[in-house]
Design a protein around this nucleic acid. Structure first.
Lengths: 246, 246
DNA sequence: TTATCCTACTGGTCTGACCAAGATCAGACC
DNA sequence: GGTCTGATCTTGGTCAGACCAGTAGGATAA
C-alpha cells in the first residue's frame, strides 16, 4: 500500500502512456528526438520494462514513435499510413462506416478545392490536367480508371497546399479506394457513366483554373452527389435510363 | 535452436499481431468474440506473454479489441474515436499550423451543417438553441463566452449525426480551443464584436432550422471569414472602425 | 432448491536474466 | 600523430516464472 503508484492513480500502462503523451503534446518531445532507454523510463516511472514496451508499442501503432532495434526509440513525424491499419480492420467488420467516412472526405475535398482556387500554382494545374487526361484515357478500365480518378481528387487536395487537409484526405482515401473499385465495377455498365466521369472532372478542373471557389465547390459537390446517385441506382438495378447530369 | 520462430520468419510481436489480424480480417474473429487467454495465445504461438500483451495492446489502441481486466480480451466494434488519439498527436506537432488545422475544422463544420440540415432532430435543434442562448448570456465573459461558442459549433457537428465528422471535429477542437481563448481576448475590445457573435450564430441557427443546406453552409462560412477578419485587424491594431458585417 | 464458499482462471505486473547487434572508446598498428 | 580494430557498454527483443487481485463457476452446505 505504498503511495508509489498512487502518484497519479493510474495503472502502469496508463502512467507511462500519459507521461509520454504529455511531453508529446506539450512539444517537449518533437519528431526526431530520441527517448530515453526503456530501462531508464521503467525505473523513472517505477514500472517494469514490459509495461514500458506496451506503451511504446502503443505509440508505435499510432505512428507517433518508432522503435529502432538496438538504437532506441525516436519520435517520428506522424504518418497517415497508421490510419490505414485502422481502416483496414474497421472496414472488415463494419462496412456501413463507409458512407460516414465518405462524408468526411467530401468535407475535406470541398474545402481543399476552395483553397486550391486561391493557392494552386502552375505545377498544381499541370498535375490536375494530367490526371484529367488520364481519366479520359482509362475510361474503359475499371482498375486504372479508378486510379486515375483517385489521382485527380488527390491532386485537388495537394493543390490546396494544406498539410492538414492532405493528411486527413489521404487517410480517408486509403479506406475509400478499396470500396471504390467495387463501386466502379458496379457502375461500369452505365453508358452515361463515361460522360459523367469525363465531363464532371473537366468542369471541376475548369472551375479551379478559373479560380472560382464557389463554382468549384458546388461543382465538386454535385459530382459527389451524382456519383452517389449512380451507385444508388446500380444497387436497385435501375439500368441506365437517364442522363442524370442535372 | 528449434525452428520455433522461423515458422513465419516474423519477430515475436509481428507473429502475434499477424496471427490476430488474419482472423480479424477473415472474419473468424468478429466483434463480441472473446479471444483465448493471453497465456494460451503465448504458448500457442511460441512467444512469451509480454509479447502477446504488446500485440493486444496494439490492437487496443487501434480500437479493434478491448482488454477487460480479469475477464479476457474481446473483439470490439471498430469505433472512429480511435482516430482522435492519432489526430491529437499528429496535429499537436504542427503547432505552427493552427491556421491550417482551422481550415480542416471549417471543412468539417461546413459539411456537418449541411448534413445537419437534413438529419437534425428536435433534440438537436434544442441543443443548438440552448447554445445560442448561452452565447447571448455570456457575451461579456471571455472564458464562458468561448465555451458557449464552442458548444454551439459542437452542436452543429453533433446534429450531423456523423460519427466520423464528430471525431475529426473534436480532435481539432481540442487543439484549437487553446488558441481560441487568446484569440477571443484579443478581439474582446471590438464593440461590433458582440453583434457579430450573436447575430451570426442566430443566422446560422435559422438556416439549420429552415433546413437549407446551401444557406447554412454559406452563412457558416461567412461567419468563419468574418472571425478571421476580426482577428487580422486585432493583430494589426486596427481598433474598431467598422461594422465589418459584409 | 438455494445460497454460500472455494478454486481455477484471467488480466496486470514485476523481477531478473540472456541474446544480438549498434555505439563508443581505448589501445594497437601504420 | 593519425587511423584502424576490437572489447565493452548500451539498447532493443525476448523469455521464464512468479505473485496479486478479482471473476466465474462449480462444489458444498443449509
Amino acid at each position: 500500500m505504498e503511495l508509489k503508484r498512487a502518484a497519479e492513480g493510474e495503472k502502469g500502462f496508463e502512467k507511462v502512456f500519459a507521461f509520454l503523451r504529455e511531453r508529446l503534446l506539450a512539444g517537449s518531445l518533437k519528431p526526431g528526438d530520441r527517448l530515453i532507454s526503456e530501462r531508464e523510463l521503467a525505473t523513472l516511472l517505477g514500472v517494469s520494462r514490459p509495461i514500458v514496451r506496451e506503451a511504446l508499442r502503443a505509440l508505435t501503432v499510432l505512428g507517433i514513435v518508432e522503435i529502432r532495434d538496438r538504437i532506441g526509440t525516436v519520435v517520428t513525424r506522424p504518418d497517415v499510413s497508421v490510419l490505414n491499419d485502422f481502416f483496414t480492420f474497421a472496414l472488415a467488420q463494419q462496412a456501413d462506416m463507409l458512407d460516414d467516412v465518405m462524408q468526411a472526405r467530401v468535407a475535406i475535398e470541398c474545402q481543399a478545392i476552395r483553397l486550391a482556387c486561391d493557392r494552386a500554382n502552375i505545377a498544381d494545374f499541370e498535375r490536375l490536367q494530367r490526371a484529367l487526361a488520364k481519366i479520359g484515357e482509362t475510361i474503359d478500365e475499371a482498375d486504372a480508371g479508378g486510379m486515375a480518378d483517385f489521382e485527380f481528387h488527390r491532386a485537388i487536395v495537394v493543390a490546396s497546399h494544406s498539410e492538414t487537409l492532405s493528411v486527413l484526405h489521404s487517410s480517408m482515401a486509403g479506406l475509400l479506394t478499396h470500396s471504390h473499385r467495387s463501386r466502379r465495377e458496379l457502375v461500369q455498365g452505365f453508358p452515361s457513366m463515361k460522360t459523367y466521369l469525363i465531363d464532371d472532372h473537366r468542369r471541376i478542373f475548369e472551375a479551379v483554373i478559373a479560380r472560382d471557389p464557389e463554382r468549384a465547390d458546388a461543382t465538386l459537390r454535385k459530382h459527389f452527389a451524382i456519383g452517389d446517385e449512380y451507385r444508388r441506382r446500380a444497387v436497385v438495378g435501375d439500368i441506365d435510363k437517364t442522363s442524370a447530369s442535372g
